[in-house]
Design a protein around this nucleic acid. Structure first.
Lengths: 234, 234
DNA sequence: TGTACATCAGTGAACGCGCGTTCACTGATGTAC
DNA sequence: TGTACATCAGTGAACGCGCGTTCACTGATGTAC
């Protein structure tokens, strides 16, 4: 192995060690991440960090990207682990539980990507792509169910009293396009609804809104996700 | 009027002016609220703030309390403004839209109460009471609908494929007790679901998750709230 | 109504701490001939 | 294989700034007799 790539490998290890330390700081300080504190923990002088990240914002961006990808990977793995691909409700529960478990295991990173935005920080475009990974899995499960003929398209009367307006249908079309799935409006709408319900539940649990109210958190979550599965028709 | 109460009134005005200035700072700095910056904006020396608030945390707590109460008051007023008390879907839409509008008008305060928790800050018990005001309105609308015989109790077969477990039913009983409403399990569950759906939508819109995805925000929100109304049976 | 005293609001300086970022530098590690 | 040079990682000091909180103090405003 040429010497140059050794240097590159050491460099990559340093980058990931800095991110690891920064992640552990997120847990206590939230998004008020301090470069100096990270450097201190690594036994370096604060200016040394600038060899690896051009600024605090760049480090934050890296952490946000990693978080989206870690969550996305966890959800993909959970769905992929379901042997019988035609058991759509099982896949749905596996994927949504993976979101909850990842969030509970990494609360600070979850807050970084799904909590209130960091003041004065604007996420670059890259993060938007990574953010799509998780919803893509959820929609794929729905699309598979629809393709298998399990889910009703909703054309029959009585399934959806309030029809989406033209503007909403345009948004649904955008989603259909960007995720490249062939689903009728009603199911895309339900997918978004379920997506909101999923993250709404996780955020409420993590951010303390369920305190003194919902104590059987795991069971309640399953109940909610089953309700959404009922709605979608799995 | 006795002189003492003049002093008390001036004092009260100062307290509310400090809170106003602090609120305007929340908008740019998020929860990293700086006492010194607030004092500067008021043309005072930073230590003067301590005549009115014992610490930064106490000021934050006051802002959180105010935010919960302002939101609660807005929602109560929106519901109360519906003349025909038996038009439950209209009341539901009025109340939920009030949440969204208040949040859009006061994004920083919304983030303060429904965003990621401020690191190192623990909300005292008082705030929990104020936090109940908004859900109380939502549940009251549901309870009125149920009392009027408009909503199905859900005892008939086929309405809810997955029954709540014993632990979840215990949580539902707690909610029934603390809000003092007489609703069957199924409707309390749907109330919580709708509550989560409501704030999930508002948070996603405010925290940027709908960027490049949902553009017809107001119409989409109405669509979602109508869907929940369908579910509840209004 | 007038005076002595107590309460209160706000000042200004200080303590002790933290931060992001820049810059000239030292050594070590790699590259080219 | 050996040497001259370039690249790179990390240092240490400094800039200029911010923060929450304490404390002794000055005046003004209220209270009690």
């Amino acid at each position: 192995m040429p010497a140059a790539s050794i240097r590159a490998r050491v460099r990559a290890e340093m980058v990931s060690e800095i991110k690891d330390v920064a992640r552990s700081h997120l847990a206590t300080d939230g998004a008020n991440l301090s470069l100096r504190a990270v450097a201190r923990d690594m036994g370096m002088v604060s200016s040394a960090i600038y060899r690896y990240f051009a600024s605090r914002d760049e480090l934050l961006t890296a952490l946000i990207l990693d978080a989206y990808n870690a969550l996305g990977a966890a959800v993909e793995a959970a769905d992929a682990a379901v042997r019988d691909r035609r058991k759509f409700r099982v896949r749905w529960l596996a994927a949504t539980r993976a979101v909850r478990h990842w969030a509970l295991a990494n609360p600070a990173e979850y807050a970084l990507i799904y909590g209130s935005p960091v003041p004065g920080y604007a996420a670059p475009e890259d993060t938007i792509v990574a953010a799509t990974r998780t919803p893509a899995v959820l929609v794929a499960i729905l699309a598979d169910g629809y393709a298998a003929g399990v889910l009703a398209s909703g054309d029959e009367p009585g399934t959806s009293p309030v029809q989406p307006s033209k503007a909403v249908r345009a948004d649904l079309a955008t989603i259909r396009g960007s995720l490249a799935v062939d689903l009728p409006d009603r199911l895309i709408l339900l997918a978004v609804t379920s997506w909101v319900q999923l993250f709404g539940n996780v955020s409420f649990e993590l951010f303390g809104q369920f305190q003194n109210t919902i104590e059987a958190r795991a069971e309640f979550f399953d109940q909610q996700m089953n309700l959404m599965a009922d709605l979608m028709g799995f």
